[in-house]
Simulated assay, not measured.
Amino acid sequence: MKKVLFALLAACCVWAAYDYSRPVDNYVVRTVAAEGDTLWHLVGGVMDSEGDHRDVREVIFWTRKISNIEGDLQPGDVVLIPIEVRK
C-alpha cells in the first residue's frame, strides 16, 4: 500500500512540475460595460472564452485595480481584464 501511495505522490509531483514549467501567455482584454453588466459577468465570460482557468475572484480583484473601478460598474466604463493562459 505504501508503494502505491508513493508512486501516486511521485506522479502528482511530476505532473505539477510539468504544469508549472509550461509557458504562460499574459495579456489584457479591453471591454466596455453595457447596461446591466456586472464585473462577475464580464470577467467570467472573457475568462471562459479565452481559456483562463484561474479563480474568477482573483481576476476580478486585478480587474478592479488596473481599471480603477472603485464602486459599482457603470454603463460605458472601460474594463481591462488581465488574462493568463497556459500553452
Rank of each mutant, 00 (worst) to 15 (best):
N26V: 00
A10M: 10
V79K: 00
V56R: 11
H41S: 12
M1V: 10
R57W: 08
A7D: 14
Q74E: 11
V32K: 07
A10L: 14
V46D: 05
A7E: 15
L5G: 11
D55I: 09
W62S: 10
L8R: 06
D77F: 04
T63R: 00
E84F: 01
V24F: 12
A33D: 00
S67K: 06
V29S: 01
D52W: 00
K2N: 14
L42Y: 01
R22K: 12
W40S: 15
P75Y: 00
H41G: 02
R30I: 03
R57E: 14
G44L: 07
P23E: 04
D19I: 08
R86D: 07
E70G: 08
L80C: 03
D55S: 08
D77N: 13
V85H: 04
D52I: 02
T38M: 06
F61V: 11
P23H: 07
L73H: 06
S49G: 12
L42H: 03
N26C: 13
P23T: 10
E50I: 01
V46T: 05
T63G: 10
E35Q: 14
C12T: 15
P82S: 09
E84I: 10
Y18K: 11
R22V: 07
N26Y: 15
E35C: 02
V46H: 10
P82Q: 02
K3R: 13
T38R: 09
K65N: 14
N26M: 12
A10D: 11
F6V: 06
R30M: 13
N68M: 04
R30L: 03
R54I: 04
S49K: 14
T38Q: 01
R57I: 03
Y18T: 06
E58C: 11
L73F: 07
H53M: 10
G36D: 02
D19P: 02
V85W: 05
L8W: 02
A34H: 14
L5C: 07
V43T: 07
L9R: 15
E50P: 07
D77C: 03
A7L: 10
D77G: 08
V29R: 02
